[in-house]
Nucleic acid binder design. Structure first.
Lengths: 79, 79
DNA sequence: AAACCATGTAAGATTACCTAACATTTAAAT
DNA sequence: ATTTAAATGTTAGGTAATCTTACATGGTTT
C-alpha cells in the first residue's frame, strides 16, 4: 500500500479547495495574484493544488478572519 | 495542522486518478460499470474519487496486469 | 465462424474553470 | 466628509474537462 500523496503533489482542483478551506474562488485567485500562493497549472491551464497549498490557504484564512490584511499576511507567511 | 484528507473523502477528479493509477478513463469507467468501484458524484455529475478508491484501482490494475479478468477480480476484491 | 470481453475512439451535450471587467463594501487617508 | 484603496462579489464570453452513448477493434472462448 502506497497510502499517501506527497504534500507537494498538485492533485486538487479549485472546487475541492474551496470546500476544504471555506474560501471563495475569487479569494483563492486573488491570493495567488498577490503572491501568497502559487498553485501549478495543468495542461489546460487549470489551477491544481497540493496539500501544502491547502494548508497555506487555511492559515491565510485564519489570518484574514483575524482582520489581518494581505500585506500583513505576506510578511507573516514569508517562506 | 490538519495535514490530511480522510481516506474515504472524495477529492480527486478522474484526470488525477488516471495519472496516479496509469489506467485510462475508459478503464476506470468500465470498472465502475462492472461494480468494481463506486466513486461518488459531485453536483455536476462528475466522478470524484477518494484515496480508498485510488488504492482499490491500483490493486485492480495489478490484477489486470497479471492477466486476471473482471470476473476474477470481482471475487478477489469482494468486500 | 460467432459471440463475448475489455478497451479504444468519436460525437454531442453539459459542467467547471479561465480571464477580464465592472460593481460593491469597508477601511484608511486626505 | 470625501476620496482612495483594498478585498471580494458578480457577470460575461471563451476554453477545457467530463459525461453518456454508440460504434469499432483485437483477443478469447465456444
Amino acid at each position: 500500500m502506497n497510502y499517501d500523496i506527497p504534500d507537494h503533489m498538485a492533485t486538487f482542483p479549485i472546487s475541492v479547495v474551496k470546500e476544504l478551506t471555506k474560501l471563495s474562488g475569487r479569494q483563492i485567485r486573488y491570493y495567488e495574484e498577490q503572491g501568497l500562493i502559487a498553485p501549478v497549472r495543468n495542461e489546460g491551464n487549470r489551477r491544481m493544488f497540493s496539500l501544502q497549498d491547502i494548508e497555506r490557504l487555511k492559515r491565510i484564512k485564519e489570518l484574514i478572519d483575524q482582520g489581518i490584511n494581505i500585506a500583513g499576511i505576506k510578511v507573516m507567511l514569508k517562506d
